[in-house]
Design a protein around this nucleic acid. Structure first.
Lengths: 193, 193
DNA sequence: ACCTCCGATGTCAGAAGCTGACATGACTCC
DNA sequence: GGAGTCATGTCAGCTTCTGACATCGGAGGT
């Protein structure tokens, strides 16, 4: 991370990273399959946490709420590493190859969540759709968390994003003119001006 | 594509691709920034079509329906190239680097759609969330379209996936016990067994 | 104390992806 | 006919990543 911040991601060679760690380039590649992977080692733990949170959720809970709970469960972990996340994020956003890696990690997360949902008896296509919706919520929430000067927890932003998604999809064919949800996000204007 | 099917993606070098086209490796890289990019040249046109469909949608239409309409608008184009898509898809699924590229193309699509929605006056966070939801719908629909032995159009699967998403998010806090949507997908079991 | 095995690391050579600099050749426009 | 432009070729070189083999040091058995 320090090297990346000194010289930028693409002006840092794997050899330099390895040297800074007192190792050889070859050894680096034994620990990380990729140069990119060095920035994503935490994703396995995240996935495990979310999968087990889903598996352990109350039986009666609706799938979308189960996924939201799993997202909220990651909140403390992110809170601990807010400083690190704030350094990491601009780096990733600035480099397409890193964004690609991030996206495939999220896709893998979605698959794992879908699988865990299926273990609860959720039908396959539904499970995948719910998981993808969860990722959409996560992206939205995470972005706001990073930029949040008021330092609300990630979990808060997850709740806001879920409420927003519910408003968005609460269209004509599913439910008509129902009262707005409790704790709706402040900005709730959905249509054209 | 023929080379990839003969020898597999990673056993095909850029030099070979260029030679098959009667060109040089260097020239290949002048047309495609990447080896991967050669499989994704169509994505720009797709993006343009969806953006303009969104921009031209009726003013009163809800954002989620606008996005769904944009997805449906791509249906004829995919229908024309079903054969090509069926060769391309397993190739992409089998190679992580290609999946990554596909995901970033979808993310770019989402950004473009969000931007186009903002042009209609949709609030920023909502626009992004709707666009991401649209991508989730697209992924679900596309997967089913590829595997669909009955050869329904992509547009049909888009409608099914949207209906499914509406059922999924129609939870306690947004709408309670509303009648099911018309044309609901056959499998509508959402909760645990 | 000694040996053996194993895991972590180093060394080396090399393939493939990708880039910058410059050359060539054809075609257009004056 | 000359100048400029555009597509392509040529070449050298860097970086990422891999396979094969060597080395070293520690753990455990005798």
């Amino acid at each position: 991370m320090s090297l990346f911040q000194e010289r930028g991601y693409d002006r840092t060679t794997v050899e330099e990273i390895a040297a800074r760690a007192g190792l050889t380039e070859r050894t680096f590649f034994r620990y990380f399959s990729d140069k990119r992977e060095v920035l994503f080692s935490g994703s396995k733990g995240l996935e495990a946490l979310m999968v087990s949170t889903i598996a352990d959720a109350p039986k009666a809970m609706a799938p979308i709420d189960v996924v939201a709970a799993a997202l909220e469960a990651t909140s403390p972990g992110f809170e601990e590493r807010r400083a690190h996340a704030c350094k990491r994020q601009p780096l990733i956003m600035a480099h397409a190859e890193l964004r690609e890696r991030e996206l495939i990690k999220l896709a893998s997360l979605a698959s794992a969540m879908a699988e865990s949902l299926r273990g609860r008896g959720v039908e396959k296509t539904v499970a995948h759709l719910v998981a993808e919706a969860g990722i959409a919520i996560f992206k939205s929430a995470f972005e706001r968390w990073i930029e949040d000067t008021k330092k609300h927890e990630l979990a808060h932003h997850v709740r806001v994003a879920l409420a927003e998604l519910r408003l968005i999809t609460a269209g004509a064919s599913a439910a008509s003119s129902t009262p707005p949800p409790t704790k709706a996000p402040r900005r709730s204007r959905l249509g054209p001006r």
